[in-house]
Design a protein around this nucleic acid. Structure first.
Lengths: 375, 375
DNA sequence: CGAATAATGATGTTCTCCATGATATTGATT
DNA sequence: AATCAATATCATGGAGAACATCATTATTCG
């Protein structure tokens, strides 16, 4: 019933310990052998052995020793994040973003191509190509250098990277994004729904960094949700989790209508409400009420530690967050922390990067890819 | 972001391999060394070594060799499930059940003490004592022989085994069940909500045996839910997951009222509906409609592989399941399999046993309890 | 009764980790 | 400048675990 820490060979032990050392070293900081030994729980001697091996394979490299301090200065080692690259892509209604990141998830180059919600399939895919190649070029790479790619898009995505259903974008249902991106960057391509990727990103480097259970709320022209459960993105049996908006009584379908009824442009309504416009304030109140209903359902179902609000409207956090919290209080047994997204528009791309990195780590961990660097 | 398969010592490797062998041997079947070796992926020689050690520690024992077949007959080994015992208790409105099970989860003795929903705290706890001692005695054990206990009760339970809130039972809020049961059986006591335990049980030996994501629906005088996500019981940050019933629009609050309005006794309504009574049929239809609304919220949120219906009303599956399925179809993007509980009234106790067994396995796995048997 | 078959037992090797002590490099102290 | 204290690196030997290989043993089949 539990996972599979399954034992095995002696080499498996070394593999696990190598991985532990890498994990300790990851994140840009450089450490001395003694520090690594302490973090991994290994003996100093073994740590040295492991590090030597990793050094030779190109996974770690020596860093500058720090001056000062008594005694012989220790050598410092750091994870060689530049050993590999991943590609992250966010295909939205208004923008296509692409970034190249290193193995620490640090963005090395980025590109953005504006698109419109009305664009057809071919045009949008062409924008994807442009964004990806532009940012690969800026990083001085070709597609072959990429170890894995993550792609975020609106709509439901199946297990092999095809868009099963997209209501927001025309001609988008049925696109085989994995195949398309694989043309640009051979190697594993992982496609996910954008709300989910934004959720992932918030758990990684956003406000939910230490939350194991978290609900991400995409509040914008569309309303959506992404769930992180037990530290992992929850996909569901057919990749259709978080689609609470489909239930009419929970209000997500009609939520935005309150805003568009009050004014032409949605962003204006929040500004007007902030300025004291009565009808705008009413519209926002109604919007929040509907938003909170669906959110309460998620919160009651999952009892997460935190709700993170992202999406276009999260810019108007000042008139959103507090009312939302109050509405949640009405329904929830225990109202979780409600916080605004820390990543804003970059959330989805970063989540795509995380998705790709997870894949890389999984493959290294499973030993399917032996720990060999591409120098 | 992933778990902690953290490496370590050589002894750690042995520990993992021991565990793998135990897992392979668990479940009553006896295996030959070669079979174990094949299942664990270890070499025959190492398997032999591990098994010898486990044999000596009392975790496995030799079984009768099977006759027939060419070649030297192989020795057969089996997990010594009788090496330890766990206690499972279900404290309900009408019955208190207790069972003693071995490490394979096979029930060795059981006891049932009838209670009434109106009983106060002292009386109900006294029933718990009676059920537990009766079934310990029947198994020839004292509380000290029990390695861990699992307890199921209605209501919200906190992390240390206290009932935080119970609406169904009088004087029940605030009981420290863990402390109470620990008096009977020292050692770890784990307390959980009954719906959740029933969910766990269905995933273990019920109809959801191979489902990783599953929603259990408790349909009875109360309505509740238990969630299994990624093969594990989902508790939530404050142990309050699955409480979707708190949201009025989702109908669980008013669901039963349809039934009680139609007739005095709930069970009768289903019977009457089955017999063709028009008003009873309408009541059932309304009940199912409300039940489905909350269930849809759970299904849309989680996209589980399966919905299992348990609780008192699941006896009337013939007039429940199919209409429920149809109603779910109305709202859900992908309607999961809907099945009736296979365990019925025994579900909660079995879940309690599983909870206790999980604790035992975790402690063995973490090495906090060295693999030492109590002979 | 011998041949084929499959399990068991024994031996030696290799891999990995660890403990211990020797050696190196630096800052502070005399 | 010489010495000391502190810390890090290097080297050696030992123990535990897993594995490959081969000889041995217990069956059944012909």
């Amino acid at each position: 019933m539990t996972g599979e820490p399954s034992g095995g060979d002696l080499s498996r032990l070394r593999q696990l310990n190598s991985l532990a050392v890498i994990k300790a070293l990851q994140g840009g900081t450089s450490l001395t052998l003694t520090e690594v030994a302490k973090r991994t729980g290994l003996s100093r001697a073994s740590t040295e052995d492991v590090v030597r091996e990793l050094l030779q394979m190109g996974w770690v490299t020596e860093a500058d020793p720090t001056a000062g301090g008594v005694g012989r200065p220790a050598r410092r080692y750091r994870f060689r994040a530049e050993a590999g690259r991943v590609l992250g892509i966010d295909i939205g209604g208004h923008n296509v973003r692409a970034v190249v990141a290193d193995l620490d998830g640090v963005v090395r180059s980025a590109a953005r191509v504006p698109v419109t919600p009305e664009m057809g399939r071919a045009e949008r895919l062409e924008a994807v190509d442009r964004a990806a190649t532009e940012c690969l070029e800026a990083a001085g790479l070709t597609g072959g250098d990429v170890w894995a790619s993550g792609v975020g898009t609106t709509g439901l995505v199946d297990g092999v990277g095809r868009v099963v259903l997209s209501e927001a974008l025309p001609e988008w249902t049925g696109v085989d994004l994995a195949a398309h991106v694989r043309r640009l960057a051979p190697g594993p391509v992982l496609v996910e729904n954008d709300s989910r990727l934004a959720a992932l990103a918030e758990c990684w480097r956003g406000v939910a960094r230490y939350a194991k259970d978290m609900v991400f709320l995409l509040a914008g022209l569309r309303t959506g949700a992404g769930l992180v459960i037990d530290g992992k993105l929850h996909k569901g049996f057919a990749n259709a989790s978080g689609e609470i908006g489909a239930l009419p009584v929970l209000g997500w379908i009609r939520a935005q209508e309150h805003l568009s009824a009050a004014s032409g442009e949605a962003g204006d309504v929040f500004a007007a409400a902030r300025a004291g416009d009565r009808s705008a304030a009413t519209a926002v109140r109604r919007y929040v009420r509907d938003l909170a209903l669906g959110t309460s359902a998620l919160v009651l179902a999952l009892d997460p530690q935190m709700v993170v609000v992202g999406g276009g409207f999260s810019r108007s956090a000042d008139v959103l967050i507090e009312p939302l919290r109050r509405e949640l209080d009405r329904w929830c047994i225990r109202t979780p922390e409600v916080r605004m997204s820390a990543l804003g528009e970059e959330g989805v791309v970063l989540g795509a990067v995380r998705l790709a990195l997870d894949d890389v780590e999984d493959r290294v961990l499973d030993g399917r890819t032996p720990l060999v660097s591409h120098p």
